[in-house]
Write a protein that binds this DNA or RNA. Sequence first.
RNA 1: GGAGAGUUGGCCGAGCGGUUUAUGGCGCAAGUCUUGAAAACUUGUGGGCGCAAGCCCUCAGAGGUUCGAAUCCUCUACUCUCCGCCA
Length: 424
Amino acid sequence: MLDIAFIRENPDKVKRAIANKNFSPETIDKILASDTKRRDLIGKIELLRAERNKLNEQLKSARTQELMAKSGELKEQLQTFEPQLREVEEEFYAQMLQIPGVPLDEVPVGKDSSGNEVIRTWGEIVKLDFVPKNHIELGESLDLIDIERGSKVAGFRGYYLKNEGVMLQFALMQYTLQKFISKGYTPVTPPVILKKRAFVNTGHFPWGEKETYKFTSEAGEDETYLAGTAEVPLVSMYQDEVFYEKDLPIRMIGFSPCYRKEAGSYGKDTKGIYRVHEFVKTEQVVICKNDLAESLKLHEEMMALTEEIAQELKLPYRVLKMCTGDMGEPQAKKYDLEAWMPGRNDYGELASDSIMLDFQSRRANIRYRDVNNEIKFVHMLNNTASNSPRWLVAILENYQQADGSVKIPEVLIPFIGKTEIRRG
RNA sequence: GGAGAGUUGGCCGAGCGGUUUAUGGCGCAAGUCUUGAAAACUUGUGGGCGCAAGCCCUCAGAGGUUCGAAUCCUCUACUCUCCGCCA
């Protein structure tokens, strides 16, 4: 959520920003109209209340009929305006939740993924002297992935992991957790069945509601939703709390299962386990003071850590700076890490590193007392650390050998106890 | 599923119709003192509207009673404890 004072003072900047995110700038005019209406009513009501307070002061000592009648009159007037204000404020708040975050000035303007910029590449794409298999073929021939039975039992995008597929998944997660713990991150396994508020806080709602699995109780109340990422519970973990600046930044590495309906992507990545409904992921969430320079610094740090993992796994990758139209509603700046996947003969996304500024903390009401004892909203950031199965796709396809076997990345060998995956 | 107890500011915790501008403590901040620090003392500490003076709001939320509600009544949400059931 944006600061209404900021919108009031910079309507054109905000309009331009949301137009760049493919939103209608007229929304801003509507919000400003609601805001004016709201402030009008507040003014009226506060005058009436001030009058009533004065009357009540007099009534303490002199309880005359006249004063009591006047007080009753004021109450009546208040009772006509107060419900109006409540209605206007509800509308106003709902509108505020619809406004996306403002991208930083340095973010390239673009309509869709074609506007993203490659800012660096790492590693060499090895020219194979054989026709590479994709992860589906490798998974089948090595008995690591069973998509046929996954679909039979779970439906489209269902899959079973087996044998070293399972071991690789756990190894990757364990290796990632150890890495982040050694960097001072606090490991957290959060709940993933969550109240709606948590999804509003991150900015997944209102935009991503169709993308989210929902549990409805018989009474129609206490609806809960399944988180698509540990970002959701981790961002809301400190909801309505106040930190001291000396306790920031807070660095967390969450591990959780993730659930996604993939409602908007029926035709996309339909083969294999690149895009699935459930998977496990480690996610970084960082909370810091309200300072752009600090956010920018941490954003780079978080990216460097994920790159360190990709590098230690020796996965060739590139880093993209996402453009305004392809970065998602809440973000102010975003990098994607994409690894080379020989089976796709293309890059595929492995991680997404975002600066949220105070967009999420305003919704979640997470604040801190700064060194001047002023209360401010924190900044929040998040980045994928590693996930399965998408990182498995990258590993299997990049580590495949001419004879159909797959080598195990050196850093994962201690967790699996063997150096290659081979059948027959 | 049944029974009971709670929800007050960053935290703890008083208050049980107008003396509360929400007592007190802790934390935090500024100042005084000090070579520096600690301690001590003083002041401050949530939200909104307004250029400002200032005004308004805030005791889980929503209604109600009353001239007047943190305080009384009703409903809702959440938390905790015990019993039952399941693991």
